[in-house]
């Protein structure tokens, strides 16, 4: 059995890329990574389990049709049975195309290794995180799109070879006109720790205490939908059913009531801490640790305690 892993390395190798290589290694067979772009850092994927990396340098910032052709080419030349993606933007555009092209059933949003005891089945998130489904793939080839933060990257080997290929992926049909990207932030879907705040913070000028805690923890920041809607915070920070779905190790929610649509985006978090002045706030029912108190007092004290802890490490 051979597993092909696609990673997007146009902006360097992300943590979620290391996660999918680790996941593929755990599947048991040989792991080959395919990518496009200019990265000179691909050999280190061998440390996470790849036996080699094949790269088409001509596919830079490729569109979904080019990347689909690149992966289909690699899947054929490598004779791969399973193809693994990280369930992020590229996968959401490419994996469905590839599924049709290769006649391979697609499991999107996998959160665990497949169960091979009766066919090929895998656990996925359904109903916005309110339940899990077990999807069975009926086709010979399989595609798995793994939710970020489902496995931790593990170093098990040494650097591997990088082979350049030409997949004849053609020209891009989608022309990139501009990219607006804030610098220095931790991308929310990848963050292990997240500090989030809602309307209880009263105004955008009060976010300093949220950012202070995030900085002390090395966490990303997030917010509830009304906060993004009224423009207190950028839209890409909005988590929930209509925003980003995240599953960090730790989610801290200050001044957020915990409406069901908000929970839908965060209930995959391993540990939830809730800070709220209202003992009846529904969020306490979903929390592991609760602080009944005023965010304006609790957040600075929390930050101080984290700094003290960091200093003692």
């Amino acid at each position: 059995m051979k597993t092909l892993v696609y990673i997007n390395s146009d902006n360097g190798i992300s943590k979620s890329s290391l996660e999918v290589v680790t996941y593929a290694k755990k599947l048991g067979g040989e792991v080959v990574v395919v990518s496009g772009g200019n990265s000179s850092d691909l050999a280190r994927l061998g440390e996470y389990g790849a036996s080699k990396v094949i790269v088409d340098r001509a596919v830079v910032n490729g569109d979904e049709q080019q990347i689909t052709k690149l992966i289909a080419f690699a899947a054929e030349t490598e004779n791969a049975e399973i193809i693994v993606f990280s369930h992020e933007l590229t996968a959401k555009a490419v994996a469905p195309r590839l599924s049709v092209k290769l006649k391979a059933g697609l499991i999107s949003g996998a959160i665990a290794l497949p169960d091979l005891s009766s066919g090929f089945s895998c656990k996925v998130n359904v109903f916005s995180g309110k339940a899990f489904g077990v999807v069975t793939v009926n086709t010979a080839k399989k595609i798995i799109s793994l939710l970020p933060n489902s496995v931790q990257p593990e170093i098990t080997g040494a650097a591997c070879s990088v082979e350049e290929i030409s997949s004849n992926a053609g020209a891009s049909a989608v022309k990139i006109i501009a990219t607006k990207k804030p610098e220095g932030n931790i991308p929310l879907p990848e963050a292990e720790l997240v500090v989030s705040a809602g309307r209880g913070l009263k105004g955008p000028e009060n976010w300093g205490i949220v950012e202070d805690l995030a900085t002390a923890l090395g966490a990303a920041t997030a917010c509830s939908r009304p906060v993004a809607d009224i423009g207190w915070r950028p839209h890409h920070e909005h988590v929930g059913q209509t925003g980003v779905a995240i599953r960090p190790n730790l989610y801290i929610a200050a001044g957020i009531s915990g409406a069901i649509q908000h929970l839908a985006g965060v209930n995959g978090s391993k540990v939830i801490v809730v800070i709220n002045t209202d003992a009846e706030a529904p969020f306490f029912k979903a929390a592991d640790y609760g602080i009944l108190g005023d965010a304006f007092e609790v957040l600075p004290k929390f930050t101080e305690a984290v700094k003290k802890f960091n200093a003692s490490k």
């Binding site: 933007l89 989608v174 022309k175 990139i176 501009a178 990219t179 607006k180 990207k181 990848e190 890409h236």
Partner: peptide, 13 residues
Amino acid sequence: QDIVGGVQVVEVS
């Protein structure tokens, strides 16, 4: 399009 941590403007026929 939303991309990780930002926005991308694209054109297509």
